[in-house]
Amino acid sequence: MLIATTFQESFAAEREQAVKVRRSRSRERSRAYSLGEAPSDIVDRVRRFVLANLGLKPRASAIVGALGVSESRLRRAVLAATGLTLGGLVLELKLLQARSWLSSNRESRSQGEIVAALGFASAASFSRAYGRRFGESMTATRRRAVSGSAPQPALQDNGDARLDVMPCKSLSVQGL
């Protein structure tokens, strides 16, 4: 009987310790959420992650794992800060990076190499997205950079105000 009582006490103590650990982890998580990282801060972290992994097509789960926030929190923060979905933000960042590379006289990569470096399998679909976003072809952007003429406005009135007015200052890829 003494052995059974000791076993029960030991089991109860281990279970109590496990409950304490779970509660403390839960408090830490809830404290982190209650401190509330601003949506623009989360978008800045997403931007850094995407730009560091340009050749990949990052899934939400990979971004969530790298940032340490829940997927729903991530999606809400991106939508609140930019008016874009998470996929839309990733595409926007890649389009801005492509425009930066194409506008640089120092960039010697071809358009196909740029598209591949950004992780796109289809140059045609990327080219269409680029044209819709900036109102000019990638060739026109490159030609303008080589000739030194004034740049076209980066934002085009395409009827979707959320894409035209980017409320988050963090979407710039300049200075990277």
Score class of each variant (00 low, 15 high):
D41Q: 14
I42A: 02
I42N: 04
I42F: 04
I42T: 12
I42D: 03
V43E: 01
D44C: 02
D44M: 02
R45W: 00
R45I: 07
R45L: 02
V46L: 13
V46N: 04
R47M: 01
R47G: 08
R48E: 04
R48A: 10
R48I: 06
F49V: 07
V50G: 05
V50H: 11
V50W: 02
V50K: 07
V50L: 06
L51P: 10
L51I: 13
A52K: 13
A52V: 07
A52L: 03
A52M: 08
A52N: 05
N53T: 06
N53W: 05
N53V: 06
L54N: 00
L54M: 10
L54H: 00
G55S: 08
G55A: 14
G55Y: 11
L56Y: 11
L56F: 14
K57H: 12
P58R: 00
P58K: 10
P58I: 04
P58N: 10
A60N: 15
A60S: 15
A60H: 04
A60M: 06
A60R: 09
S61P: 01
S61V: 14
I63Y: 00
I63H: 07
G65R: 15
G65W: 03
G65Q: 09
G65I: 02
A66D: 14
L67P: 07
G68S: 09
G68R: 13
G68L: 11
V69W: 03
V69Y: 14
V69L: 07
S70C: 04
S70D: 14
S70T: 15
S70Y: 04
E71G: 13
E71F: 00
E71A: 15
E71T: 05
S72T: 14
S72N: 05
S72M: 07
R73Q: 12
R73S: 13
R73Y: 08
L74Q: 02
L74S: 03
L74F: 01
R75V: 08
R75Y: 02
R75H: 12
R75M: 03
R75D: 04
R76Y: 06
R76D: 12
R76F: 07
A77W: 11
V78I: 11
V78P: 01
L79G: 05
L79C: 00
L79E: 12
A80Q: 04
A80W: 00
A81M: 06
A81Y: 02
T82Y: 03
T82D: 11
T82P: 03
